[in-house]
């Protein structure tokens, strides 16, 4: 197996970079969407319940099924992969952002408004920073989850390490088939760990000292 890896080091590296790049960009986009939706719904109990329902149900949709559905309008390639990965990334962030924003002490928000902050300023300078640790926890969950989902995106010819897994599985029993599938899987697990560590670091750097646990 070591031989298999060293012979294809360039290809593996290229696909790893593609994979991480897809995941990171989709998580960023998904986080923005998740937080934006949370900001829209968190003050309204009905909308909050709806958003929580959507994020719960959404996560039960099998990735394969969603990719299959997306194939019809978008065809093979990067577009369905990005849509599917972003969709799954947004859900945990949405859920945590709603919880985080709802958990900010109402008295603190009222005093922000009471000293003359506009609604937008109170949200940006008080509510979101205070909800940030919870939102970031959602982003970590999202990242771990979509590392695996991005592998499945290779099914629609998206970029990334999923290609090794699928080509391995389709040739099972043939030469290097197992090596190929294992290489893809192990690389994904390792990269997921590295990303998670980076997010822990981001959390350290971006959480204000006053609210650090």
């Amino acid at each position: 197996m070591w031989e298999y890896v060293t012979e294809r080091a360039d290809l593996i590296t290229f696909q790893a970079v593609q994979h991480v790049s897809l995941v990171v960009q989709c998580v960023l986009l998904g986080s923005l969407i998740g937080v934006a939706l949370a900001v829209l719904v968190y003050r309204n109990p009905t909308a909050t319940a709806l958003a929580n329902g959507v994020s719960a149900v959404g996560l039960t949709i099998p990735a394969f099924a969603l990719l299959g559905i997306l194939l019809a309008p978008f065809g093979f390639g990067i577009t369905p992969a990005v849509i599917a990965v972003t969709f799954y990334a947004a859900l945990p962030v949405l859920r945590n952002a709603v919880v985080g924003l709802a958990g900010v002490d109402r008295a603190t928000v009222e005093s922000a408004r009471g000293i003359g902050m506009t609604r937008a300023a109170a949200l940006l300078r008080v509510e979101l920073p205070l909800a940030w640790p919870v939102i970031l926890a959602g982003i970590r969950v999202a990242t771990q989850m979509v590392m695996g989902i991005a592998a499945i995106a290779a099914y629609v010819l998206g970029p990334g390490l999923g290609g090794f897994i699928f080509s391995g599985l389709s040739r099972l029993g043939g030469a290097n088939a197992l090596n190929s599938a294992l290489t893809g899987t192990i690389a994904i697990v390792l990269l997921a760990l590295v990303l998670d560590l980076l997010l822990v670091l981001v959390g350290r750097l971006t959480t204000p000292r006053g609210i650090r646990a």
Binding site: A107, E110, S111, A112, G114, L130, P208, I211
Partner: peptide, 10 residues
């Protein structure tokens, strides 16, 4: 307000 209503992250 009660307890000052300070912003804990500032």
């Amino acid at each position: 307000i009660q307890a000052g209503g300070l912003f804990p992250h500032m």
